[in-house]
Amino acid sequence: MSFLVSLLVLSALIFFHELGHYFAARAMGVYIEVFSIGFGQKIVSFRKWGTEWRIALIPLGGYVKMKGQDDADPTKKSYDKDSYNVKTPAQKIFILLAGPLANFVLAFFLYLFIAFGGPNILSPVIGQVVKDSPAFVAGLETNDTIRSINSIEISTWEEMAKIIESSEGALDIEIVRNGYMQQISLMPKTTQTTNMFNEVIEKKMIGIGSAGVTHKLELGAEETLSYAIDQTVHASTLIFTGLKKLIVGEVPAKELGGVISIVKLTSDASEAGWMSVLFFAALISVNLGVLNLLPIPALDGGHIMFNLYELIFKREVNERIMINLTIAGWVILFSLMGLGIYNDINRLIG
């Protein structure tokens, strides 16, 4: 059941991405020949609004085939009035951007739905206390709840961590222990740790771990909107940062995940509840939006790059160069997919 949920989530995200392209192309007067979820042999199909809608055998992507555009053979062009080829570079860029934009918009609404449902967030309840750490020396104990730091009220673990990390000097911490309030003072210590990208970094810490206690985040109307915007921006920034670190070598290539990781993590999320599925779906949706903006000729970003060239220099990219770059783009794309699957298999074996 969880595997089926994974495929449905992935297919839905691809559907919305391609739907963005579809509506933008139709708005620009481009005829859509095929709208496909998946690649390869078609399983089912029907014709509606002049377009063949199909589900194909390999559920690892999808595409909208516009009249006059063929990534498999860039030389195949049509110059009819309802063809993609006769549109201006600006119109083409609008069509190309609409897919990734649809993913960002979908992520926003998923986060909005999560906000309405009251997302679970870590409470500032202490679990492990590291021996000989500032917290250990000061007398903090497991199950202590941190209420405030330097008179700043604390309601989440994240708030507490940010205050400690940016602190200057000693901290006056108010805790609740067995129903009684206590005041504790301590000095944070700069310590080596690893971040979410498995990089070794240094930051101020006091030597505590979360007890894993959560509570629902109660949000008003304005806070709900802010939450959805902040989460969408945060996820986008996180993915852009991760990509940058992969490209410059700050994060090793073995950290790259593939479709197996996506399916497994979505499957795990489904077992944790629908709220977790929505969180992960929003993150994957942002991921799809970001990845499709990369300037790789086989992706939307590569086509945008070609059209920007035409817009600036008032001429199309040389056909031979475009064909070679498109082939190179497919090689890069399939290499990355292969590396991701290889890493996934290694993780499963490990």
Results as ranks from 00 to 15, higher is better:
Leu243Gln: 05
Ile93Asp: 09
Leu256His: 00
Gly179Tyr: 08
Glu18Leu: 13
Ala211Leu: 05
Phe197Met: 09
Thr88Lys: 14
Ile349Pro: 06
Leu219Pro: 13
Leu186Lys: 01
Glu141Phe: 10
Val34Cys: 00
Trp274Val: 11
Val263Leu: 04
Met337Phe: 01
Ala24Phe: 14
Leu225Val: 15
Ser83Tyr: 06
Val317Phe: 12
Thr194Asp: 03
Ala282Val: 04
Ser133Gly: 03
Gly273Glu: 10
Arg47Leu: 10
Tyr84Ser: 06
Met322Val: 02
Gly127Lys: 01
Thr193Ser: 03
Ser210Cys: 14
Gly242Thr: 06
Gly40Phe: 06
Pro252Val: 09
Gln128Asn: 01
Tyr84Gln: 01
Ile304Ser: 08
Lys131His: 14
Asp70Trp: 05
Val263His: 02
Met1Pro: 06
Gln91Tyr: 05
Glu222Met: 14
Tyr63Glu: 10
Phe3Trp: 00
Met205Asp: 09
Ser226His: 12
Phe240Gln: 03
Tyr31Gln: 08
Gly50Glu: 06
Ile323Glu: 02
Met181Tyr: 15
Phe240His: 03
Pro89Glu: 08
Gly329Ser: 03
Ser267Ala: 09
Glu199Ala: 13
Glu223Ser: 02
Ile37Glu: 02
Phe15Trp: 05
Ala27Met: 13
Arg47Ser: 07
Ile32Pro: 04
Gly209Tyr: 00
Asp230Arg: 13
Pro124Leu: 15
Phe94Asp: 04
Ala228Leu: 11
Gly99Glu: 07
Asn143Glu: 06
Asp230Ile: 09
Leu278His: 10
Met1Arg: 00
Ile247Phe: 04
Leu256Ser: 07
Tyr79Trp: 15
Gly68Tyr: 04
Met181Pro: 14
Ile312Asp: 12
Leu7Gly: 00
Ser236Asp: 03
Ser261Phe: 14
Phe116Thr: 14
His215Asp: 00
His21Gln: 11
Glu33Pro: 04
Thr214Asp: 00
Ile173Glu: 01
Trp274Ala: 08
Val30Ile: 10
Gly220Pro: 08
Ile121Asp: 14
Glu18Arg: 07
Ile55Gly: 04
Gly350Thr: 00
Glu153Asp: 14
Phe16Ser: 12
Val290Met: 02
Lys48Asp: 11
Lys65Arg: 14
Asn287Pro: 07
Gly179Met: 09
Met28Val: 13
Ile262Glu: 00
Ile321Leu: 09
